[in-house]
């Protein structure tokens, strides 16, 4: 861990000013990932700008029927917020599938989006990693890659994004509000995280001088038919091997709208509009779910230890869609899969 300076941001504008003035500075909110990475010498910020006192803790309804979540709302507060529980239970469920109660108490909404990969090599400075040290090489491609990506990988990086919450946000088509030196802008959730390509060191399209101020959820919350299913190596407190967020709108025995997002399989929450299109208008049944799964996974590529994820993802998609269609969403505190 390196020596670092500490300062506090007075307001959002001040936060932006401070980060713009120091390219080796980092914002700190809950610190649940950043502090770990600093201890492992993976992140070496020379200055931490504490944003925890910024007024970004509100959860409020928007004029067009959605909900705006301040970037500093703790994950646990968000998961148990009455508005979220009632209207976006998929999001609440995904949050509760992640980390531990203690971590969720500390972790912020904005910080959750900025979690870095749990690829074993990214964490170990004794090994090459293009994400940590561009150009040094990818140790995972020919190394221990059991938890790595099967979709959207590149020669440079096969890391996954570790968040559960983001998988639900992708399915719900949230919008990320950010502020920067040139003012505020919105980023569609699908465009927020990047694929590794040949710049795996960049996880997101957030500019280095920008700060996340809020996440906005559109009015449609799929509260009737949804499920978040996370498959992992132990029954809690482990990152997803594969996770699935399924959200369906069912009317008259047919699927009118469908969202399907996967975690643990790619550098970003993975969606496939063609796979979702296969569900739209169909009668909700396993054969249709299987077709959507096959479409979503058609370009999946396994490595030495993670090829099992392709079939596992297929089964998990089918199961999660069935849970959503049957209105029997997975309950995170119950480890038996419904």
């Amino acid at each position: 861990m390196n020596n670092f300076a500490y300062s506090r941001a007075a307001d959002v504008a001040d936060a932006v000013r401070q980060i713009a003035a120091d390219r080796n500075a980092k914002f700190i909110a809950g610190g649940t990932n950043l502090i770990d990475l600093m201890k492992y010498d993976v992140e070496r910020p020379v200055r931490l700008i504490d944003i925890t006192r910024l007024p970004l803790r509100a959860v409020e309804e928007t004029r067009d029927g959605g909900v705006r979540v301040g970037a500093l709302v703790p994950n646990s507060d968000l998961a148990y917020h009455p508005l979220i529980e009632a209207r976006y239970p998929l999001l609440a469920s995904a949050i509760l599938a992640g980390a531990s109660a203690q971590l969720r108490n500390m972790a912020s909404t904005g910080g959750n989006l900025l979690q870095r990969t749990r690829c074993l090599y990214f964490y170990d400075t004794a090994t090459p990693c293009n994400k940590r040290e561009p150009g040094s090489g990818c140790s995972a491609i020919n190394g221990i890659n059991r938890t790595n990506a099967i979709l959207g990988t590149s020669e440079a990086c096969i890391a996954t994004h570790p968040s559960d919450m983001c998988v639900a946000l992708a399915a719900l088509e949230a919008t990320v509000h950010v502020a920067g030196p040139s003012g505020e802008r919105c980023i569609d959730f699908a465009d927020f995280h990047r694929l590794p390509g040949d710049t795996p060191d960049r996880d997101t399209n957030l500019e280095s001088q920008e700060i996340i101020t809020a996440i906005e959820l559109p009015a449609k919350g799929f509260a009737e038919n949804h499920s978040y299913l996370k498959i992992r190596d132990r029954l809690s407190y482990a990152f997803a091997l594969v996770s699935v967020a399924a959200a369906l709108e069912i009317n008259g025995g047919r699927i009118r709208d469908a969202r399907l997002a996967l975690g643990g399989v790619a550098h970003k929450p993975w969606r496939d509009r063609e796979a979702e299109a296969l569900l739209q208008g169909a009668v909700p049944e396993r054969t249709v779910f299987a077709k959507a799964a096959d479409r979503l996974l058609r370009d999946a590529k396994g490595y030495a230890h993670n090829a099992f994820k392709i079939d596992l993802a297929r089964r998990a998609i089918i199961r999660t869609l069935a849970q959503a269609a049957n209105a029997t969403p997975q309950i995170q505190s119950v480890k038996k899969i419904r």
């Binding site: 749990r118 074993l120 090599y121 964490y123 170990d124 004794a126 090994t127 140790s139 020919n142 190394g143 221990i144 059991r146 190596d233 132990r234 482990a238």
Partner: peptide, 18 residues
């Protein structure tokens, strides 16, 4: 989990060593 190219335990923490 040992990467024999490095001779190193790669999950040397209790997040990844389950």
């Amino acid at each position: 989990l040992v990467d024999h190219a490095f001779g190193r335990v790669m999950n040397a923490n209790i997040a990844e060593y389950h």
